[in-house]
Amino acid sequence: MATGSTHTIVAIVHDRPGVLNRIATVIRRRGFNIASLSVGHSERPGLSRITFVVDGDELVADQVTKQLRKLVDVVRIADITGERLVGRELALVKVRAAPQNRAEIIQFVDIFRANIVDASVESLIIEVTGDEDKVTSLISLLQPFGISEVMRSGRLAMVRGMIAGGDSTNVARVMANGSGPTPLVEVDRSGG
């Protein structure tokens, strides 16, 4: 997953056909590395909210934000990495649960304040919410029992508190024209 630094970018986008396609096109075409992406409805009908976790430094995050902002369907977008924010991920983990292991698994679930949302003779589905580290830790603790399926939602993020005059993405304070990054990595542009 994430190598080195990551940035959390939040966008409000139109809930229209093709919007995700446009966003994915920009991400692919510009070669951005997205560690996770989660989409869902926002507080306003017709608008969806996306949280991106971007692999890369400030300069990369700056380009991701600016290039995506150019999409007409992107209403607001901001890098909220430096903000006081709440970041959460949800994961469902299906783990093999032989009778002799059940007690131990349930103990881990309790410690992590996770929930058992389904139980069968052979397996349990565990639901866990938290920051990515917490989710990752629980998954690795469950690994020895035998995990058959994992579904992680990717990060959902929100800035804490209320920002006067701005919306929850805190875009008002994100300058449209930042001073930009240093020369990027040399690429071979020798094509004719």
């Binding site: 300069l59 700056d62 380009q63 600016k66 290039q67 902002r69 150019k70 449209a176 024209n177 930042g178 001073s179 930009g180 990054p181 240093t182 020369p183 990027l184």
Partner: peptide, 14 residues
């Protein structure tokens, strides 16, 4: 285009 500023070259003032 704000995305051009800092894309290839870092300006002193953008």
């Amino acid at each position: 285009d704000p995305a051009e500023i800092g894309k290839n070259v870092r300006p002193t003032v953008g």
